[in-house]
């Protein structure tokens, strides 16, 4: 058996998984996004492929047949991206100090912290979001406390802020863990060297710690930003149906609306946004390390 053939056979299980579980469904989704809705299955398989679903994202047909701009989907796209960005920034703001602090602990301290951070994953995401519902609702103690010290009434639940809080809570571990792995390997003598060469604590953080932690920061940011874009449980529960995100309308198209082709269209667009973000990040990192 030649080396190439041998390599192919050894790789075949992985290749099969990638082909049949990722490649084929993706192509299928892209194909469906070009079809019409129909029947009980949600897809009219016999319809001719067209770009109609993509046009529908931004334009709609007026009563007299002219196409006019419809911004309702664009607003949801924009809101999804900005909520994901806010969540990413919040996760980094909370995650960086926690990860730094964890890396400074003893062996046992680190293990305990890692355990504490992973414990929320033992509970279903839905249950954890219901917990936030109880924490933030009007007669909850957090809400009562905030309204006691605030001069004007504050609504904590069913708005963008509630969604951002919920998403940050759910995804924070994904920022902490990659940052922690970077800081755990960090050579703290470099900090001494920076101080020795005249850098104050703030300057040493900016010039030595953060640049070396960049791979962790990028990984942590992507791991939060991407799931955020597709999130639908948190916006549905904590946004109260008012704050729709991409994930929600995709779910609605496949569910209640029974419009699989349009759902597939939205999913393809979501995928495209993620691809653009990840490519931009990769290009930026290559330029930095070159």
């Amino acid at each position: 058996m030649s080396a190439a053939l041998r390599r192919f056979f050894l790789l075949s299980p992985a290749l099969a998984v990638i082909l049949f579980l990722i490649g084929v469904p993706l192509c299928l989704m892209a194909w469906v996004s070009l079809l019409d809705k129909g029947g009980t299955s949600g897809v009219d398989w016999s319809s001719a492929p067209s770009s109609a679903n993509y046009v529908r994202l931004a334009w709609e047909e007026d009563f007299d047949g002219t196409m006019i701009l419809n911004t309702s989907y664009l607003v949801i796209f924009l809101r999804s991206v900005s909520l994901a960005a806010v969540t990413t920034v919040l996760s980094l703001a909370f995650g960086l100090p926690v990860a730094l602090w964890m890396a400074s602990l003893s062996r046992t301290g680190r293990d305990i912290m890692l355990l504490l951070i992973t414990i929320p994953f033992w509970t279903n995401l839905l249950v954890r979001n219901y917990a936030w519902l109880i924490i933030l609702r009007e007669d909850g103690w957090v809400s009562r406390f905030v309204n006691m010290i605030s001069p004007w009434p504050v609504q904590l639940l069913y708005n963008d802020a509630a969604v951002a809080i919920g998403l940050t809570y759910s995804l924070l571990p994904f920022t902490i863990l990659p940052l922690y792995t970077v800081f755990e390997k960090f050579d703290w003598r470099l900090l001494e060297a920076a101080h020795d060469l005249g850098a104050t604590r703030k300057r040493a953080l900016l010039r030595v710690v953060l640049p070396i932690a960049t791979p962790g920061i990028v990984a942590g940011a992507l791991l939060v930003f991407i799931p955020c874009l597709g999130a639908f449980v948190t916006p549905a529960l904590l946004g109260g149906g008012k704050t729709l995100m991409l994930g929600n309308i995709i779910q609605m198209q496949f569910g209640a609306s029974r419009n699989w082709p349009f759902g597939a269209t939205l999913a393809v667009v979501l995928l495209a946004i993620m691809l653009v973000v990840m490519t931009a990040m990769a290009l930026w990192r290559n330029r930095r390390t070159a």
Binding site: D187, R189, L190, E192, A193, V208, I212
Partner: peptide, 9 residues
């Protein structure tokens, strides 16, 4: 420094 502690980045 004994380990040189050069900034790797």
């Amino acid at each position: 420094f004994q380990s040189y502690a050069l900034f790797p980045h």
